[in-house]
């Protein structure tokens, strides 16, 4: 028979152990954590890791798909969430558009990454032009990075931001890889209807007129043409103002099945002087832009399942 006080202490110890165990159990199980904590933490996770987090479990995925999750991030990065229409934000998979807009600005950037030339050359002094083509390379860095590729259409020369030509045809082009820029077929389908808008800027010499042409090509991943739109010759009067024009190609619901082939947009323009004797001044091309914009829905968009 144990003395009474030993039994008492035994019981007391047992109780203490129980309490300790309870304390251990009380430690919040990570599964039951209120959403707030996960939200607070995920808000700080770098964007590239978001695509791992949404595979962890349903709760995390659900959180990442939520508009409020992105609203906060857009604010932190000083981006405007309202550039994306509400219907796109709310649709199933809309988070992908939010993600891609947040990381790559698919709906607000200029896909043409040539630096703006008007800023670089505020008062263009066109140097003496050689017989065929005079090219001002403003930023050879870009070429080394392989952003632009050569090909043999026209007597094309690749320039980085701005070039001036003399009396023979001279052209410039750029090719955008939409997939590499973050606009993949799955996303294109979500943002239907949308348009790819190209803008070009050019100017004639101050003492002679110029002739310009431009062309937009849509290519698939094998570089086969899907769509080519050629624009007629335009004549620009002798003056130094910059002239701009834009053209867009629309994709609507009925085109949904073709989107998987859509990969490159190639944009080229070329120009030459109207008189053949001049070499003092020249036709000028500046940076062009390519943007992706959402379009209004038309009634026929809704007829297609």
């Amino acid at each position: 028979m144990l003395p009474i006080h030993t039994i008492f202490f035994q019981i007391l110890r047992y109780c203490c152990e129980l309490t300790q165990m309870e304390n251990k159990l009380e430690t919040v199980s990570l599964l039951d954590l209120p959403e707030t904590v996960i939200e607070l933490v995920l808000a700080k996770v770098p964007e590239e890791d978001i695509l791992t987090c949404n595979l962890v479990c349903r709760a995390w995925k659900e959180l990442i798909c939520r508009k409020s999750f992105w609203k906060k991030r857009f604010q932190d990065k000083k981006l405007n969430l309202y550039e994306i229409p509400k219907c796109v934000q709310d649709m199933q998979g809309g988070w992908m558009i939010l993600y891609s807009q947040y990381c790559r600005g698919i709906l607000s950037k200029n896909y043409n990454r040539m630096p703006p030339c008007q800023k670089k050359f505020p008062n263009q002094q066109i140097p003496e032009a050689p017989s065929s083509c005079h090219i001002l390379l403003a930023d050879q860095e870009l070429e080394r990075n392989g952003i632009f590729t050569h090909s043999n259409f026209f007597e094309r020369e690749i320039d980085m931001c701005y070039f001036a030509t003399s009396f023979r045809w001279c052209s410039k082009s750029y090719k955008v890889d939409l997939w590499r820029e973050g606009l993949k077929p799955g996303l294109m389908k979500l943002i239907l209807p949308f348009r790819i808008k190209c803008t070009r800027i050019c100017a004639a010499g101050f003492d002679c007129g110029s002739r310009f042409e431009w062309e937009i090509r849509i290519l698939d991943s094998q570089l086969k043409f899907i769509n080519v739109s050629k624009h007629p010759n335009i004549l620009v009067e002798p003056r130094d103002d910059w002239e701009s024009a834009e053209y867009s190609i629309e994709f609507r619901r009925k085109d949904a099945n073709h989107l998987k082939d859509l990969r490159y947009v190639e944009f080229l323009h070329r120009g030459k002087h109207t008189p053949c004797w001049t070499y003092h001044s020249a036709a000028k091309f500046a940076r062009s832009s390519m943007t992706v914009e959402l379009c209004e829905h038309k009634p026929e968009d809704f007829d297609i399942p």
């Binding site: 962890v56 479990c57 349903r58 997939w179 973050g182 993949k184 799955g186 996303l187």
Partner: peptide, 29 residues
């Protein structure tokens, strides 16, 4: 992540596969 947070995948059916597909659309090649 699942190990660190003591979480188990609770995706049903093809949900996880679907998410992987969505993720592929969000990354550049």
């Amino acid at each position: 992540i699942r190990t660190a947070f003591k979480l188990k995948s609770d995706f049903k059916g093809n949900e996880e596969e679907q998410t992987r597909l969505e993720n592929r659309w969000c990354v550049e090649n």
